[in-house]
Design a binder for these strands. Structure first.
Lengths: 213, 213
DNA sequence: AATCATTTAGGGTTTTATACTGAGTACCCC
DNA sequence: GGGGTACTCAGTATAAAACCCTAAATGATT
């Protein structure tokens, strides 16, 4: 008998899945939690083999719940149950120790299979999820390149840039930072080069795009 | 016997709710659809009293499905079933003829009550939903004010603004749009006033903030 | 018919920004 | 101690933008 805890703030969903699993003879739903903060207390008084854990919870995030559970109850396995097929969610969840990740738009059979597999010590992921991850790995390099392209701005330049974005003139910036007008112009010039901009418009765009302000 | 059709792209959820309702003697789930485009064909060959309709569907939106259903089968009643407790969704759904709106995080009892009430010709809304609507009505005026604060930019001004954001000088803009430099300067001045900006930086910020480009 | 916003354009002035070159100080790292 | 980078400031010059004014043609709205 595989003892399962369902953690999902959507009562209707939790109830539904619970009934879904009730038909399975080898699976027993021993509890349901609608809040992340209820999970740890529940586990302390009830034996559970597997947690079906929703990522988006109203109080504590599913990631956090997973981390705590894995810390306190290492033998307990977590299957993430999510609406979102996004690589970032999946990887984060796996880093927190989840053994499976299935989407809510998969059918009952796949859910049951996931529970059985994870209970047997294996991993289980929805086909869509694995595809997403593979795509993500393939495009990871682009992401890194994008990260590299983030310009390195010195502290002073950042200050100047911030004031530029806030619609201040060079003279005003010089006054605020107690600098010579020429110095501000100098910083501005290097910013134009570093951010590959032609003028103020480009500086502002870059600043906002790279969240440098 | 109340015949119910469940429309939700999350198979697991649909299956769960179906089982949830299977215990109710007066309710019969006659079908499940995972795509909006499957609803109309299904209704043409199967008798249904009430549709539990998810708003977010992968192909046709729940709003569109609701509209079509109400058009073709006026006697059929729709209960919107959504994760999102947002006034905009609720009002749109009601405008499309839905008779009820309940959240997925409500329990089984409320779902059953909603089905019975709507079947009896009444309306039914989750408590949270009605609260949201009331709050929305109260803050409607602020929303209007916010809408008013969105600057009204003329076509030409929008073109000029777009080129400004793309780091073009006034002379370049004049050349591209076949205008006099003075005309471009004129537009730029009015843009400064309309967008309440001091200089190019302000124009770019406003343009990006209000998605005017 | 009259009003209003838009689009167009000019003349003139002042303020800002950009370009280019050069240079002294300071700090960190090897 | 030398090499690199950041920070500071200067002069000269041009380009661009901002601010002041006016004003005519158009089109929509009332």
């Amino acid at each position: 008998m595989i003892r399962v805890l369902i953690v999902d703030d959507h009562t209707m969903f939790a109830d539904g899945v619970s009934l879904l699993l009730a038909n399975e003879t080898q699976i027993e739903v021993t509890g349901k939690c609608t809040l992340g903060s209820h999970v740890m207390p529940f586990l302390q008084r009830t034996a559970v083999d597997i947690i079906l854990l929703d990522i988006s919870l109203p109080d504590v995030s599913g990631l956090e719940v997973c981390r705590r559970v894995r810390e306190e109850f290492p033998r307990l396995n977590v299957i993430a149950l999510s609406m979102f097929n996004q690589a970032s969610y999946v990887t984060e969840m796996l880093q927190q120790g989840a053994k499976g990740y299935i989407l809510k738009n998969t059918g009952k059979d796949e859910l049951v299979r996931a529970i059985e597999r994870v209970y047997a010590g294996e991993e289980f992921f929805s086909r869509e999820v694995t595809e997403t991850i593979m795509r993500d790995l393939m495009t990871r390099k682009e992401a890194e390149n994008r990260a590299k392209s983030i310009p390195k701005i010195s502290r002073r330049e950042q200050e100047v840039l911030s004031l530029i974005v806030n619609e201040h003139t060079n003279q005003e910036i010089a006054d605020v930072l107690c600098l010579s007008l020429k110095t501000v112009e100098s910083h501005r010039s290097t910013l134009l080069v570093k951010l590959n901009a032609r003028n103020t418009a480009g500086l502002v765009k870059s600043a906002l795009a790279h969240a440098l302000v």
